[in-house]
Structures are given as C-alpha cells and as structure tokens.
Design a protein around this nucleic acid. Structure first.
Lengths: 194, 194
DNA sequence: CTGCTGATGTCAGTGACTGACGTCGGTGAC
DNA sequence: GTCACCGACGTCAGTCACTGACATCAGCAG
C-alpha cells in the first residue's frame, strides 16, 4: 500500500478547475482546493508557486510543441513560413475533442483579471522561447521577436475563435486563415482565405 | 491652510518608484510607501487597487495618445498606415528627456515578475482599446485585433530599444524602423530602413 | 534492524488587502 | 454666522495568500 495517492499535481489541478468553475476563483481558497483532495494548504503551495499557477499545470508541453514547430521547419523556410509551421504544430495540441474542456477553462480565466495576467505572462514566456528558437535559426533582431510575437498573436486570435460556440473548423485551419489575414494586412499582397 | 497636501496619488507614485528602485519591490511594503509621504496604509489602498498599480499611475494619457493616433488618421489610410500614425502619436509621449526616467522605471518592472504581469495586462487593455478604434474605422475582425496587437508589439520592441544604454535615436524613428521590419517579414515587399 | 529520503502535516508569522466606523476641516444653504 | 453635509483620511479587526522551521513516517538501501 502506498502512503500517498499518486499524481498529486494533476489531482489538485482538476479539483481547482472544478471549484473555480462552480464557485469562482476568488471565492475558492487554496486550503479548500487542497482539502477537496485530502491534502493541506501547505502541500498545495509545495506543488504550485501560487494559487493561480494550479490552472496552468501542463502548459509546458504546449510550449514545447510550439517551439519544436520552429525548430523542425525546413532550414530554407522564410520566417513567415516558419510561423505557419509552428502554428500547425501548436494547433495539433488542441484536437477537436478538447474544445469543450478548453472552453470551460478559458471561461474561468476570462472571468478573473488575476488569471488573465498570469495567462498573459505565460504567453510572454512562450514568445520569448519562440524568439530564441528563431535566433537559433539565424533570424536577427528585431525580426525574431516580431515573428515570435506575431505567431503568438495569431495563435491566440485563432484559439479564441476556435472555442467560440458554433465554430466547427479545426484550430489549425482557423490559424492558417488568421495568418493569411496578417499577411494581407502588413504586406498587402496575399488575400485572406475566403 | 489646507487639511491635506494635494496630489496624493502623484506623491505616492513618486515615493513608490523611489523605494522600489532602491530597496526593491518585494522588500517594500505598502505601509512604508504610505508612511514615507505621511499617510497610512489604508489610504494607499484607497488610491490604488493594489500595490502594483501605484507604478502605473498616469498611463491613461499614454493610452489616449495611442488611440487618438488611430482615430485621427486619414479615413482612406490602410490599416498599416494607421498603425504607423498611431505609433507616431504614442511615441510623442516619450520625448528624449524622458528616456532616463523611463529606463529607471522599466528597470524596476523588469526585476519583478509580478510587475511584468501587470504591465502585460495594461498592454492587453491598450490593445483592446486600439482594436475598438480600428473597428470604429470600419476595419473588420480579425484584422482589427491583428493591427492593434501588431502596433503594440512594434511599440514595445521599439521602446525596449529606445531605453537601451547608448541608443540615441528618437522613439518615433525606432518605431518606424521596426514597423518596416514587420512589413518585410510578413509581406516580403518593402525592405527595412537601413 | 537501522538510517536515510521524500512527501506530507503542523504551527506560527508576515504582508496584501477589505469592511466598518469614527474624525474633522471645508463648503454651501439659509 | 451656523449648521448640516461631504470628502479624504485614520483606526481597527479580520481574511487569505504565502513562507520558514520543524516534526512525522512509509519505503528503501545497507
């Protein structure tokens, strides 16, 4: 018999999402989350740096997929093509089955400014990692940062659309369309997909 | 004789910046900031929603300048031209005399993740306001959001460069250059300014 | 059997914030 | 002139996020 249940962080993450969704983020204390899975507040804070962080458990893999999309793009690809490749790689992390769960999670974040701030910070970290990946391919500054930030912006616009009620296209398809709009906006040459 | 000194928020803002810069953000309590200008902690929190907010006092005018740049651009201007106009308007808020003070303030923010989160949030609010201004001009979605986000991204890259030690170009000039790089990156037509 | 390790519990403390209520010059109605 | 009201502030008590220090104890290596 094991002394403690395994997967502590995952259990806390699920419990937190559940409580935040039903009772609200501010109305839920860290102690309550911990108690709901049979742990103490102190243990909660050993696993997560702060109360917000519990909602972002597992994001690491997503960032990794996004960055790998940049790393594995053909060496000769232009930055904008690399962004497109990274977008496809990142979008693969959100198959359609996940749409409903993603929507629920985003709803919690959208309802609380403190959580929005943390999300923005995570995206900034992602953009920093992407910029570094671009530099590793030989892209200079400020092009690397511009490409990274643009990629994140396009992704978030596409993601927001993806979880919208009634939307049925895949995240990858939506992202490709938004990237086309960006090209049209700044370059003026390629028209956005219909 | 007045009962209280005027300009309470401004005094708190200055005192906070001073203390954060010398002692560090986390090592400075809200009560200390308040006491340093002869007030109590309770009064501090009547003027600022939280401890971070004191550092962002006055940002409203900057956002206003940025948005007005969009509003006052020629009706026929293409979105990318409108972004350029908004950038000039926003950059006018940071004349070269302000470079040193801006650098000091940014240094405080860069040293603390909590402050970075708040700054990101402020930028997100700015981007939202800009997107609304674009929509008011008849720009649809996602173009409006893309233009707004791109404008903010370009501004921040330029701002970061502007406060760099040794940099002597004006913020406006730097921003114009970065915008050119963005066009080159996504459109591929116009080369960045040398 | 013994000693060490790692995840957890317990406890006490700090600091960010908040609600309730009291204080008191300044101001306008009369 | 006075008197009621208002607005900016002080005081106090309380909650909750978070932290450091120390204790506990099943499992594992020897």
């Amino acid at each position: 018999m094991v002394r403690w249940e395994p997967g502590t962080q995952e259990r806390l993450h699920r419990a937190a999402l559940e409580l935040f969704a039903t009772r609200g983020y501010e109305e839920t204390t860290a102690a309550e989350i911990a108690q709901s899975v049979g742990l103490t507040e102190r243990t909660f804070f050993r696993h997560f740096a702060d109360k917000r962080e519990v909602l972002f458990h597992g994001q690491q893999l997503f960032v990794q997929a996004f960055v790998e999309g940049v790393d594995t793009a053909p060496p000769a690809a232009a930055p904008i093509e690399v962004v497109a490749a990274a977008l496809r790689s990142a979008a693969a992390f959100f198959p359609d089955e996940r749409r409903s769960r993603s929507r629920a999670r985003q709803s919690v974040i959208d309802r609380n400014p403190a959580l929005q701030e943390r999300e923005l910070h995570k995206l900034a970290i992602l953009a920093t990692a992407l910029a570094e990946a671009f530099r590793a391919r030989g892209v200079g500054e400020p092009a690397a940062t511009l490409a990274a930030d643009s990629g994140v912006t396009v992704f978030m616009i596409a993601f927001t659309q993806w979880i919208r009620e009634g939307e049925e296209r895949s995240l990858s398809d939506i992202a490709a369309g938004v990237l086309g709009e960006l090209r049209a906006l700044t370059g003026g040459s390629s028209a956005p997909a219909a």
